[in-house]
Amino acid sequence: MDDVKKLVQQAQRGDIGAFEQLVRLYQDKIYTLTFHLTGNQADAEDLAQEAFVKAFCALKGFRNEADFGTWMHRITVNLWINVRRREKPTVSLDEPVRTGEGEVQRELAAAAEEPQEVLERKEFQRFVQRALRELSREHRVVLVLREMQGFSYEDIARVLGCSLGTVKSRINRARAALKEKARDLAGEAGVALPRERRRRGGENG
């Protein structure tokens, strides 16, 4: 029996110390997931903590032949989808950051040196991240799992407890929705899409 299974068994008998070790093993993965879902550190920490507390309470129902990490992801995702909470605004890269030496503008020094193409690429990335925050939570979950956590379709099906077919269609709809929102945001701001930039580059060269 591997270490995780032993710790799960001990935690299932109410051993909080064993559960704390499990938390240490999975906290970085779950915190990264909650940060990608919520978009800010305060909400990410709250959600991750709540997910582990919920997991401890539900641990008796966990079949130890299943993967604990997948189960933790499932609990976290379900908690985030089902518990409606007010989201704190995400930190925009344009906003000043408070440091010990007063406010500084993020990326400004580097930005002044960079060619137009790099700036537009960064701007497009920013629109895509913003578009992600505007999607429904169901769509956001599949995109975060797929693109940001690097999960396979099979892993996503296991986390969401649904069929592979459902995962495929959900990812397709989510990507299409994200693309439309990113296109709208870029259009409103007058920023060229990557394809337009390349075409423009081709004409100039």
Binding site: F19, E20, V23, R24, Q27, D28, I30, Y31, T32, F35, H36, Q41, E45, A48, Q49, F52, V53, F56, F124, Q125, V128, Q129, A131, L132, L143, E147, M148, Q149, G150, R175, A176, L178, K179, A182, R183, L193, P194, R195
Partner: peptide, 26 residues
């Protein structure tokens, strides 16, 4: 465009460490 959007999303991914003292807080 869909490929570009997905790539931009992946580029925004980060790998984070949980805050100090997180397990203890749980």
């Amino acid at each position: 465009l869909e490929r570009e959007v997905a790539a931009a999303l992946r580029e925004g991914a980060v790998s984070l460490a949980a805050p100090e003292g997180f397990a203890r807080s749980v």
